[in-house]
Amino acid sequence: MSKFSFYIMPCMIGFIVVFGLVKKVPIFDVFLSGAEEGLTSTFSIAPSLIGLIMSVSMLKASGALDVITSLLEPVGNLLAVPKETIPLMLLRPISGSGSLAFIDSIFKSFGPDSFAGRVASVMMGSTETTFYAIAIYFGAVGIKNIRHTIFAALVADLTSFIFSILMVRLFFT
């Protein structure tokens, strides 16, 4: 699995470079303008990450996270969810930067290649900030009654979470 994974990035970059050359794109010039946008947008999330990572570290240092996690542990056991990722499951549909801050803390405590670290990675990678997408799209066109959107979207998120655990078990144990 890990040998194969080293091919992904170089192959995608190689493919895109060849595609750009074939399509006569001035590849380096375009790269520079894209890279500049990427740099600006990464630094633009700095203020929200500072605020959120601070709050997640406070939650951890005060012992409140342990209390919340142990309260939720019975529910987690029922679904065979690693207890460290339960708060992530609650935060993920609401806040993208908040979940990133939380994953940063999971990696710091358990490492990215631990069971919890891998499950958290897959959960984060296979979901989106559900409420944000719903708010931005329906908000943009002034839809008042969104019918069954939230239910369908949240069940899909839960499916991702359950499959994240199953897939990590399947591929890495």
């Binding site: 890990s2 990215p112 891998r118 991702s160």
Partner: peptide
């Protein structure tokens, strides 16, 4: 609201930061 991104870049970068042995090895599971 579902993620259909082919490469979870942000996640892989964060895994690399914490010295994962293979930052992209989670991709098939994703």
């Amino acid at each position: 609201t579902a993620s259909i991104q082919i490469l979870p870049t942000t996640m892989s970068i964060l895994r690399q930061k914490y010295h994962s042995a293979a930052p992209f090895d989670i991709v098939p599971a994703v």
